[in-house]
Design a protein around this nucleic acid. Sequence first.
DNA 1: TGCCGATGTTCAATATATACGAACGCTCTA
DNA 2: TAGAGCGTTCGTATATATTGAACATCGGCA
Lengths: 272, 272
Amino acid sequence: MTTEDTPSDPRTLTTVLNAIDIIRTLMQLDGAGVTELADHLDESKSTTYTYLKSLEQGGLVRKDGKEYQLSYDMLIFGEYVRNQSLLYTIGKSEIDSLAAETGQYAHLVVEENGRGHNLYKSKGEQAVGDDYQMAKFQQRDYLHITASGKAILAYLPRERVETITDHHGLPARTEHTITSKDRLFEEIADIREQGYSHNNEEEIEGFQAIGAPIRSRDGIVRGSLSVSGPKSMFEDDSAYQKISDLVTKTANVIEVNVNMHRRSSEIINEGT
Amino acid sequence: MTTEDTPSDPRTLTTVLNAIDIIRTLMQLDGAGVTELADHLDESKSTTYTYLKSLEQGGLVRKDGKEYQLSYDMLIFGEYVRNQSLLYTIGKSEIDSLAAETGQYAHLVVEENGRGHNLYKSKGEQAVGDDYQMAKFQQRDYLHITASGKAILAYLPRERVETITDHHGLPARTEHTITSKDRLFEEIADIREQGYSHNNEEEIEGFQAIGAPIRSRDGIVRGSLSVSGPKSMFEDDSAYQKISDLVTKTANVIEVNVNMHRRSSEIINEGT
DNA sequence: TGCCGATGTTCAATATATACGAACGCTCTA
DNA sequence: TAGAGCGTTCGTATATATTGAACATCGGCA
């Protein structure tokens, strides 16, 4: 239906996929009417209409004046997903401290389907960059482009990294972006040695970042965090050192707390 | 399929509604396996399996170990919906100030399908109540139970209020909850006279709140805001006065800014 | 005011996708 | 290592989605 649709085996519910396409397109178009949507999806008006009405009845879509929009129920799902994440509930305040101590932006990230999802971000006092750019809910990043993403890649099984890069490719954002697998695996080796990742203007010109993984006791990456800001903040050696120390320290604190929490839930569940 | 399902006319896509049921149930159960879900929905295992796989392929659901969960894409939808709302983008900082000035919780609310949805909340320094209770994403409230909800009801067309109460009823939360239509319409008249609403332990024993509507130039309610805290904060007359003044003032500021923004977009769009 | 074009909505026929049970495979546990 | 419980596959019976054409409604413009 859309350009990105994989062939899909015949045992998949096409109606469900179509509905999801409509949801995504509605987001992409920032709301749309029946005709506009139908044109974008190459479907008949009547079909599109039926989908919209069904989604409306199900509460995922709302008719707002002349246009159909995603409903506020989506907000509920989103908040639910966020609050469900241990990384978020435990890490939130640590990320706030990290942003406060560094004065820059701090982010908390998880991986899903080979992309980095922003669970939370906190803005430090000296953080620059329009809120515009930062508020943009570009919440799904390529992993090879960000410090937090690279921190995750570095501790994913090599095979998984292969799959991800094969699937998503290594598109460039700036001239510093890592665009070859070889280069990426070199970088991964460096990160593992240092324990943190460094984004050297690979996502945005003039911006740098330092990230570190958050792992569970068995070594599996659960997510990562990062601090980002204008490159001037990272150029001075002692500043760089300070930030990387804070980043790894914070990652460790969250790691310990998450693992403690998991352990205690496991003990509780032993009765089951 | 679920208990709340309305018969639904035959022109609706049942597959879409079924998929949405699965999403909602997955949230309700905090993740589930195929069998558990199938039991809850009174569907065959194989059918449920097909839905889960389709939703997974569509990216709304993720298999997390042994259980299916809502995906982080939901977070993207949620953030999108939030950021799309003018009330949020404009009101956020005002709500923060309101929380700071009163020291209590401040909320920003919109109405959808007769329920109040929390767009944003901010916690003041002296705010009490476990983060637990407040972080709980109970983000869809009955309108007659909260100060913000009542502020909205007060400026909705009477006919709409009737529809909403008929549909949702007036369930009680405490012994102070308004549970009759007559009482509700009296309250609405009072709110219109005062310009703000007062929640007198109608939602939670020992908690009070003051809310005010946010309306567009044509008088249509776009949402509301409120400040809530322990009743001791509201008992002193001058404190009550101070809070209600701040609440109505803040509502006005947001109102003006939203209306200005809309006006300028309209002017821009004149070229279209 | 009244007409035109565009958009939203309905419908009946057709083409197609979904639902289910039974059977198989896997895993965990006793 | 047997067995219970869960996830997965598949063939078939059945119910569902799709579409264009016709109708309704809205908004703009003369």
